[in-house]
């Protein structure tokens, strides 16, 4: 273990010769994933994901607002990822780090491109009142691959959202909410992300830990949906990957996706 800290690249090579990683995983094996939903009662929907040691929590707060002029009949979903100084010494307190911004943008693109929630469902009264869902994600422990964990947490938290009933008074135009009656949204699709990285130009490894992220050059994230379709691919950092290898990643992502979707379904029931 000491050697792994002092000469990470060299010692890692010896591990990979045996097709095994220092934590005992095979190259394409992901870490054990734990999903826990609805544990935060002050949030309208919440999920906690543990991916190995990496831990991400997502809480959704629903609030009422006036819709924008461009989309008068649509609600708003705003994700925000916080890599707090609490989760690793890599981060400083203050404005969001670059990595947090990348993840926020990724989640936003994902929500827009595969419409997990139809924003028209969030409309209470056209031009007057819509719901805004603030999806705040906080990384509580960062041991690599925060992206997969945050996708999982975000989707699970959105599936868990229950919002109170709203009626708008015809005369005064003022809304009235009934906190007793809450209903869930129909969420569509269950996207699932799988991240890979390449070590030393030849070994592809799935679900990298923080140590692995430090010694590799970048990563590729593949998002699949419940029909095993490829819906989103993102490449980060200076990583080049031959096509055959890419196919392998996609294949693994599909497998991993269907495993994760079992988790979604298990907590939903």
């Amino acid at each position: 273990m000491e050697l792994l800290n002092l000469q990470p690249v060299e010692s890692y090579k010896t591990f990979l010769k045996e097709n095994i990683r220092p934590d005992g995983r095979e190259l394409m094996e992901t870490r054990q994933t734990v999903l826990n939903v609805g544990s935060i009662s002050t949030a309208d929907g919440s999920a906690l994901v543990k991916l190995g040691e990496t831990m991400v929590i997502c809480g959704v707060k629903a609030e009422l607002t006036i819709p924008s002029a461009e989309d008068p009949g649509k609600g708003i979903v705003v994700p925000n990822m916080e890599m707090s100084a609490l989760c690793s010494s890599h981060f400083k307190p203050g404005p969001p780090s670059e990595q947090a911004q990348v993840i926020t943008k990724f989640l936003d693109n994902l929500l827009k491109s595969c419409t997990v929630i139809d924003t028209a469902d969030l409309c209470v009264m056209k031009d007057k009142l819509v719901w805004v869902l603030y999806c705040d994600l906080i990384c509580l422990n960062y041991d690599g691959n925060a992206l997969d964990a945050s996708v999982l947490a975000l989707i699970a938290a959105l599936q868990n959202v229950k919002i109170p009933e709203v009626t708008v008074d015809d005369e005064s135009g003022l809304p009235h909410t009934n906190m007793e009656v809450k209903k869930a949204f129909a969420t569509r699709g269950m996207p699932c992300a799988t991240t890979f990285t390449v070590f030393d130009g030849s070994h592809i490894i799935a679900d990298p830990t923080l140590k692995e992220e430090d010694i590799t050059e970048g990563n590729i994230t593949v998002v699949t949906d419940e029909h095993d379709n490829l819906i989103y691919v993102q490449r980060q950092g200076g990583l080049a990957m031959p096509e055959a290898e890419m196919q392998k990643c996609v294949k693994r992502a599909v497998e991993h996706g269907s495993e994760m979707r079992k988790l979604y379904l298990a907590v939903a029931s």
Binding site: L64, Q101, K105, V166, T177
Partner: peptide, 11 residues
């Protein structure tokens, strides 16, 4: 951060 509505109220 992503833009958010200027005002919104808790239900």
């Amino acid at each position: 951060r992503l833009p958010v509505p200027e005002v919104s109220h808790s239900p």
